[in-house]
Design a protein around this nucleic acid. Sequence first.
DNA 1: TTGAAAGCGCTAACAT
DNA 2: ATGTTAGCGCTTTCAA
Lengths: 331, 331
Amino acid sequence: MTTMTIHEIARLTGVSIATVSRVINGTGRVGAATREKVQACIAEHSFSLNRHASSLRSARSHLLLALVPDLGNPFYAEVIRGINAAARRQGYNVLVCDTGAQVDNERRFFEMLKNHQADGVICLDPETTQHALGQDAALLPWVACCEFDRKAAVPYVGIDNADAAHAAVAYLIGRGYRRIALINGDPRFLYARERERGYRQALTDAGLHAPAGGVVIAGDVAMEDGRLAAARLLALTERPDAILAASDMLAIGAMLAIREVGLRIPTDIAVMGFDNIPFACATQPGLSTVAQPSVRLGECAAKLLLDKINHPDQPSSGVLLEHELIVRGST
Amino acid sequence: MTTMTIHEIARLTGVSIATVSRVINGTGRVGAATREKVQACIAEHSFSLNRHASSLRSARSHLLLALVPDLGNPFYAEVIRGINAAARRQGYNVLVCDTGAQVDNERRFFEMLKNHQADGVICLDPETTQHALGQDAALLPWVACCEFDRKAAVPYVGIDNADAAHAAVAYLIGRGYRRIALINGDPRFLYARERERGYRQALTDAGLHAPAGGVVIAGDVAMEDGRLAAARLLALTERPDAILAASDMLAIGAMLAIREVGLRIPTDIAVMGFDNIPFACATQPGLSTVAQPSVRLGECAAKLLLDKINHPDQPSSGVLLEHELIVRGST
DNA sequence: TTGAAAGCGCTAACAT
DNA sequence: ATGTTAGCGCTTTCAA
C-alpha cells in the first residue's frame, strides 16, 4: 500500500490539505458537505495521521508515560487503571514503563519527555530516583505518584505514609502485641522512610520501642524478599510477636516464612501489610493491611498531570489521600 | 531554555548539521577530532534529538509496544520482563499498554503502529481480538504472544495449551480424582478454547466425561470471577472432586470459594491452576499448577518481533515452548 | 571527511 | 469556508 497522506486525501476529495487537517483535528470552520466528503474518504482508506509529522509541528503527542518500579506488584496495576481512566477521558493514551526502579531506565524515559515523544510523565519510582534527575522534572510535565518530595516543585499525590504506619502500629498495640517488628523496603523509597518513622513514633507514643534487630530492610520488593527478611526476624532470640511489612508483597512472603517454621498466625505472631492488593484476602488467614486508594491515586495523578500540561505556569500542588485500615485474620 | 536543535549544536561547534547527525547516529565517516568536539558539545548541553523529526524522516521510533489484556495478573508482568530484557539489548524501549482485552483499545494502539509511533507490537490480547484487526497485522511488525492463530501469517510464540491441559487432567486422574470440573476463561482467548479441548480429550482418553454443569466460564479474568465460578460448581448436586482452572488467578479465587463453604483442599476437593504466578506458592495449601515459561515467552516474542522488523520479508514462524507441571499441596 | 539542500507529513498563520 | 505557504527538526542523497 502506498503511504496515505493528507495530500492524497485532499487530492481524492478535491479540497486542500488544510481543510483535511481541519476536519481531522476538528479545528476551524468547515462546511458540512465538505466535512462529510472528507470523512468518508478517510474512512474508506482507513487513513490515519502520521503522528510524527503532527507532533513535530504541534509539539503534542497525546501520550502519557507511567513509570513503575515493579509491574509484578498488583498494586501498581490498580494505580494504572486509575491513570488510564482519567487520561482516556481527555483523549490521551497511557504507556507503562517498567523501570525496575533503576535511575538509568528512568532517565531513558525522561528523554522521551524531553523529545516530545510523550506529553507528560506520572512517576511511581522511588523518590530518590526521581530526585536524581535534578530539577528538570520540575520544568517539565512531571507528576509524582506515591513517591514524592514535598519540597520539590513537582505536583504529587500520595498518602501520609508516616500517619498510616502509625495507625497500623497503634492498632497492633491495641490488640495487645508488644514486640512489633518492621520489614521495610529500600530506603530509596519515601514510603519506606516514612513508614519507619510512623512505626517508631507509634511505639514511642505507647512507651515501647523497636525490638533489638527488629527492623530489617528487605533486599528487594518481591515476595521472596519478604520471606528472607522474616526468616531473619524469626531467628532473633527475642522473637517478635507481630510483624508490620511495608507492602503486602513483603507481608505475604513473611507469612510463608512463618508457616515454614511451624508457627501460627496470628496466635504466635501477627502480620500486617500495606496496599491491600487483591491477594491480601487470598492468604490464610486473610492479611490485615493498610489500604491505599490505588485507583483514585492514579486518577488524581493523571488529573494533576493534565492540569500541568494545560496550564504549565500554575504552581504545582500536592494532594494527600486517605488510607484505611483493613482488618482480616492475620492480626 | 531555548530548544536545542542540531542546528544549534552545529553552530556552536562550527560544523554542519549533517555532521552532527552523523555523530549522533554513528552513521558515515566522521573525523575523530570533529566527533569528539561534537560529542562534548552535546554532552555539555545535554542535548537530545527531537525524535519526532528523526522518526518522521527515518520512519523508525525505536519503540516497541506490548499489548496486555490485564496488568493485574502477575503472569503478564513476567512476560514483560522477558520482553524488556531482549528489547533493550537491541536498543529498543518497551511500552506496555493495558487494553483490558478490548478491541477498541487494541485498535488505538494498532494506530500507533501504523503511524510509525512504534516500530512493532507484541500482542498478548485474546486471539479473537487480534483477529478483529484483520490481516493488517500480518503486514506490519506484529507478533502474537500466548494468544495466536496458527493459520494467520503472524509470527507467534506460546505453549501447546491443549497438551498442557491434557497433562494436567491426566495427572489429576492419576491421583484418583474422577469428577473433574473446569473453570474456563472467556472463549475469546485461545488458551481457553484449547485448554478446554485438552481437558475434554484427557477425560475421554480415560473413559471419563465432564460432570454435568462441570464446565463453567468465568465472567472475567480476575480472582473474584474464579470465586463466583467455583461457587456455582460447589452448588452442583454432584459436586466435583477436583477443579482445573484456566489460570492461577481463577484458581486462587476458587480456593476462596471452597474455603467459604467449609470444604478442605485437597481432601474434599482438589484445585489446579495455570501459569505458576508467584502467589501460587503463597496460598494454603500451595497451588498445583501448569507453569508457563513466562520470561522466556517474552524474550522469544521480542526476538521474533525484532527479526520481523529487521527482515520484513522473511516468512513468519511460530514457536511453541514447553510447559511444566508443578505439584504443590492443592492436589 | 564534510557540507548543501531536498524533503519526511503535517499544522497554523495568513490570504482570499 | 477554503486555499496557500512557511516551516517543525531531522536524515540522507549528492557534491565537493
